[in-house]
Computed example of a mutant assay.
Amino acid sequence: MSLITGLDHVNLLIDSGDDALSRARAFYQELLGLEPLERPANTDSGNPGAWYQCGVQQLHLTTEKDASAVNRRSRRHPAFRVANLEALRKKLESAGVEIIAGNRFPGQERFFVRDPWGNRLEFVERSAS
């Protein structure tokens, strides 16, 4: 029996600054449609941030000085499961977000993007087969 029962949340770093949280809201809430959550004032980092509901999991964003410099070099990423990959692709493209192709795997379609801070994000639609 595994003691791990699932993934609770993923935390991504975004640059600090006066407009960081409004830019995060525009990308993650308005463009991607994630539901904002109440964020406790006493987080471990003490830095401003935002929390979003993503299915049964959560996405946490934390501000940190110069996060983009590290993010843009990294291949680490969360993968978001989506119901209609093509509709999301069109929505992102019309918002000016660059779509990055991923290798093809059986039973799924997928692509990557980088958020405004360089975080790599994967979007996956599983097929029934």
Rank of each mutant, 00 (worst) to 15 (best):
M1W: 11
G49N: 04
E64S: 06
V10C: 09
W51R: 06
V70G: 09
L85F: 00
S127G: 15
D66R: 03
E98F: 02
E98C: 07
R39M: 08
P106E: 11
D19K: 14
N103S: 08
H60R: 02
E38M: 09
A20Y: 14
P36K: 03
R114C: 02
A79C: 13
D15Q: 13
D19E: 04
F123M: 07
P36G: 03
E109C: 04
L61D: 12
D18A: 15
T43N: 07
G49L: 07
G96K: 14
Y52G: 02
R25K: 13
R126G: 08
Q53R: 14
P116C: 08
N71E: 05
A26R: 15
P48T: 04
E64F: 08
S16Q: 11
A26M: 10
Y52M: 02
R126D: 10
L85H: 00
E38C: 03
L32M: 06
A95E: 12
N42G: 03
E93A: 15
T62H: 02
T63E: 14
D8A: 15
L31G: 03
G118V: 05
W117M: 01
L13P: 14
R72W: 13
L61R: 12
P40T: 04
L32P: 01
E93G: 09
E122F: 10
L92Q: 01
F105C: 10
R120H: 02
E109M: 13
S94G: 09
L88N: 00
N11V: 10
T5Y: 11
M1A: 15
L3Q: 13
G33K: 04
E35T: 07
L85Q: 00
